[in-house]
Design a protein around this nucleic acid. Structure first.
Lengths: 327, 327
DNA sequence: AGAACTTTCGCGCCTACA
DNA sequence: TGTAGGCGCGAAAGTTCT
């Protein structure tokens, strides 16, 4: 082969091409003669060669490069097995499968996921069993004020415990002025009574909140809708002893019964309620929590749109209704 | 990066490996440090790297090569698009499809084959049509002595025209002493008569051949087998006028009819016979021609083994039999 | 903006090998 | 006695630090 000491002539006027930042016209960057680009060209040449056979000398002059560079390419491609030296100066493309890198890796990832699924299935199984057992013996199916206050996610929240029959409906509709500290809550029961317990944070203005609810309840009862204003920041943020005696507010709302406030949570809660109270995650973001709450509590009825109307009709026929408003 | 002026230390004791002719122990050939092998190693390293990501520095020391070499590899692999520079000093394997070289070629080959099939279908179609038409109007369904003699492949052959009913059987069994100039031919017909015409080459010993056959026929008729000796070289090899009057030998073989020799081919041939006579190729090799002939003439029955026995039974009940022997 | 490094890699010298 | 190809120099291209 030719021995060229310093032939700057070789670098003659290149066909003006280059992808990355080839500014100026006559200026050609390193990219123009790069191995990568050359490889592309080489493969292109291979593409239109019959049988995928290429003569290296031909390639060399066709691509206007020293043969030395061609060797670089063929050697590597041969290395990964997609090329084949057919004879002197002749290589041939060999389609075939690529080395299938990271196959083992995909496999292990798959195994991992399978194991994960298995574990989750196991957990579901366990939980179902537990629930079944728990449902059979409800003697200890209750929670205390302490239990509730221990839930980290509820620590700085205003917490209300609602006791209602299974078929009861609860809705927390999307407020017009979203993202505002204003929450509305509707609830109705066809067969049993609804009880609402306020579980304020420690040391805060319990009395104030309780008073508000009481006031609101007694006021609104005449109008079918019982609502109350309760600032969300009312719950104190200063942590203190959790072991103090239960302090809650209960609102029994029945047409024939007057509302009252109790300092003790009832000894038995409905299963569904228990679930919704214990099934929490340690998430502190308010919006998330409230959204989760909404999702958790709303039952079958999506026809709550008609709710307001129905209320009026059914109130006098023994239905229980409770509406709550906080801003 | 380190600048190594002439570090023969770099080429230290290699891990003893090498596939092609690595003789001696300490001796390591160029192959040990070849780009091809290095590429294999590199891919191997890639294989067990999580996510197919590899740090070039790590690869460099792991494979015990200058980083420069790694660049050679990555650049080429990047060129064909199965690697990707993820960031400085980091590349990532990209599975994906290979450039699919010579796809266009396969496609064109496919097109070509399809076209070829189309043409063949067309030819079959035409032939069928022609045959149908020909069968409807047999007025011109005959060939002359000239026609036969014009067929180049038969020019130096001894040619016999056989006229027999469609259901007739013909067999040219494999001779024991193969490749010898000895041919045997059996033929039988259940319903119609068999006619055999000899079409000798021009100027040759027609009379001799004819006489032989006649003699043989009359001799063997009593023994059920009609055979004749006929040297294959009898047909002349000196080409002359093809237009001379038809000269052939006909053998009518019927139990109740005496054999005769006619100088003229009959005016109508059976379709199948026409086919077998005209369907030739310009092949001059004798063995090929005879094999083709055999294939063309043998009909359904491969049970010709029983032939000799059957012959005796059926000869008297109106079956026609013709055997021919040439050596 | 540009000095000071680092990384990338074109390029062709030079030799193992046939 | 060439070819095939290892090998590393030194410059271009990128980064980081003034």
């Amino acid at each position: 082969m030719m021995r060229l000491k310093h032939q700057s002539l070789q670098k003659k006027m290149r066909t003006v091409s280059s992808s990355p930042v080839s500014k100026g016209k006559g200026t050609f960057t390193r990219y123009d003669t790069s191995l990568g680009l050359l490889t592309k060209k080489f493969v292109g040449l291979l593409k239109c060669s019959p049988r995928g056979v290429v003569d290296l000398n031909v390639a060399s002059e066709q691509l206007e490069v020293q043969k030395r560079r061609i060797y670089d390419i063929t050697n590597v491609l041969e290395g990964i097995g997609i090329l084949e030296k057919k004879s002197k100066n002749n290589i041939q493309w060999r389609g075939g499968q690529m080395p299938e890198v990271s196959r083992h890796e995909i496999q292990s990832e798959l195994d991992e996921l399978n194991e994960q699924e298995r574990i989750l299935d196991q957990l579901i199984q366990n939980t179902e069993t537990d629930l079944r057992q728990m449902n059979e013996d409800k003697r200890h199916a209750y929670i205390t004020y302490q239990d509730l206050r221990t839930v980290p996610a509820y620590k700085k929240q205003t917490v209300m415990v609602i006791k209602a029959p299974p078929e009861a409906h609860l809705k927390v509709p999307q407020t017009n002025e979203d993202a505002k500290k204003k929450y509305v809550m509707h609830m109705k029961s066809d067969h049993g009574e609804i009880e609402v317990f306020l579980c304020p944070g420690d040391g805060s203005n319990i009395k104030q909140e309780t008073e508000r609810i009481k006031k609101s309840l007694s006021e609104k009862r005449k109008v079918n809708n019982i609502s109350t204003n309760l600032s969300m920041s009312a719950a104190s943020s200063s942590g203190a002893s959790n072991s103090k005696p239960m302090s809650a507010c209960t609102a029994h709302i029945q047409p024939s019964t007057s509302s009252e406030v109790s300092g003790i949570l009832p000894h038995s809660l409905d299963l569904a309620q228990l679930q919704m109270l214990t099934n929490y995650e340690p998430i502190s973001e308010e919006s998330t929590v409230s959204r989760r709450l909404r999702n958790a509590l709303i039952s079958e009825a999506d026809d709550f749109n008609n709710y307001q109307l129905q209320t009026e009709d059914q109130h006098s026929s023994g239905k229980i209704i409770f509406d709550y408003l906080a801003c």
